[in-house]
Design a protein around this nucleic acid. Structure first.
Lengths: 237, 237
DNA sequence: TCAAAAGTGTTTAGTTTACACCCATGC
DNA sequence: GCATGGGTGTAAACTAAACACTTTTGA
């Protein structure tokens, strides 16, 4: 006799850890204030129950848009959480996604499900609902590891950026100062950046703007090139 | 009004991709022959529905033991699959785990749920039930990436092993021949192996046996050491 | 004595690191 | 003209790569 005749079903939710970078190169995360119990008025990751005939990724994108207005972004699965007791409503599996967006391009607006949505500096995150603090921890660890081996950092910047902006981004995510000359020569030698015109109207020597050449990156990668920004010992100060 | 009043619930299953290494350093994977519909008599990854008040990892361990007799092993979450239509019984989320075990120590025995369990060479995998082929693809990719940066390969070997066995393991997983002298000096220089006595009763010069010194590894890691077996260009032949 | 695998050292090439001064612009 | 961030080259230290012969054992 099949043991799966009437299988038990838990709840299934998705949660999104959305990272953004503000003008002063601070890393931020998008949180919503819960409108309903449980954890009413607590801050939480955007997310919610999946619907019938909805894929996990679609559910993540839908919840994110419903709760924060953010859409059309890079997202990637992070991990699935299923500890007993993590949700007071009953056994709940949560599939977490993380996402990197350019904060300027996506000002969040509080929408129907949530009473409020806000970008928090990662050093100033309030107490979170459910086990969302744990999910966040995992996301930041993953971001840190991933940024070294894949050029996902570019998602956080505007289309055109200066090398200093790029360096600030890496310093923020890696939590570590990098040497300017070494950073520049390393990243330029890769040949995945395209130089554009210079900055305008700045009160100092204008920097060249660059854009990420994705096509070139894909091409190089298929020829064995491996992206790596890894301060092996310390590129310190 | 809460939108999560009566949330929809999909099925939730776990599936396990279990890798093992046989005497001749072939990489193998543990499959079961399904005893019931759907996909009755097809080969599939060991797995099944989670139970009430069971964590995901516990479900994976339980199903694996029930179906194959394999237990007490290293397992790690791989990815969660939720495409629509991946299971004919209805919408089903599957949380996949992968696992590395020493094949000698764990001869699989077919247990209650499955009619049969068998180790397949990874080049000779039959057509699999559900989307298990896709799950397997993901697992092998992950294994390949992971083995370069974490010393998980040791899970596949017996407690004592020769450097040649270790090298064969890496060559198998990386799908690439490595230079013997460079491999040896690199791995020994790390200082995470402990030299033991020599092999006995072999018809050639007996090799030293080594064991992995996990304590030392943890200690070194916390001091910034990073394990890496990465043939940067080619350590070929 | 033969077959089979173990073991080893050095040179070369490439990469990473560390480091300090001049440049272009707006105010 | 001064404050601000942009831009650059090189030498030294390290790491990776390539390479071939001798050793030990059982049969």
């Amino acid at each position: 006799m099949p043991t799966y005749n009437k299988p038990y079903k838990p709840f299934v939710t998705v949660d999104c850890v959305v990272f953004g970078l503000d003008k002063s190169a601070d890393l931020r995360i998008l949180l919503i204030k819960r409108a309903y119990d449980p954890f009413k008025n607590s801050w939480a990751l955007p997310g919610g129950f999946i619907k019938e005939n909805e894929t996990l990724e679609n559910a993540a994108r839908r919840e994110l848009e419903e709760e924060t207005g953010v859409k059309d972004i890079f997202i990637e699965q992070l991990y699935t959480f299923g500890e007993i007791g993590r949700d007071p409503r009953g056994q709940t599996i949560s599939v977490a996604y993380y996402s990197l967006i350019n904060l300027e391009k996506h000002p969040p607006i509080a929408a129907t499900d949530a009473s409020d949505a806000k970008w928090f500096k990662i050093e100033e995150i309030p107490k979170l609902a459910f086990d969302h603090a744990q999910i966040f921890e995992m996301a930041i660890k993953r971001l840190n590891a991933k940024v070294r081996y894949q050029p996902i950092g570019f998602e956080l910047l505007t289309d055109k950026f200066t090398l200093t902006e790029l360096q600030n981004l890496y310093e923020t995510i890696l939590g570590q100062k990098l040497n300017r000359r070494n950073f520049r020569s390393k990243i330029l030698k890769m040949g995945i950046l395209e130089q554009l015109d210079r900055q305008k109207d700045v009160a100092h020597r204008p920097a060249y703007l660059y854009k990420f050449n994705k096509k070139k990156y894909v091409e190089l990668t298929s020829n064995g090139f491996e992206f790596a920004i890894s301060p092996p010992k310390d590129w310190s100060l």
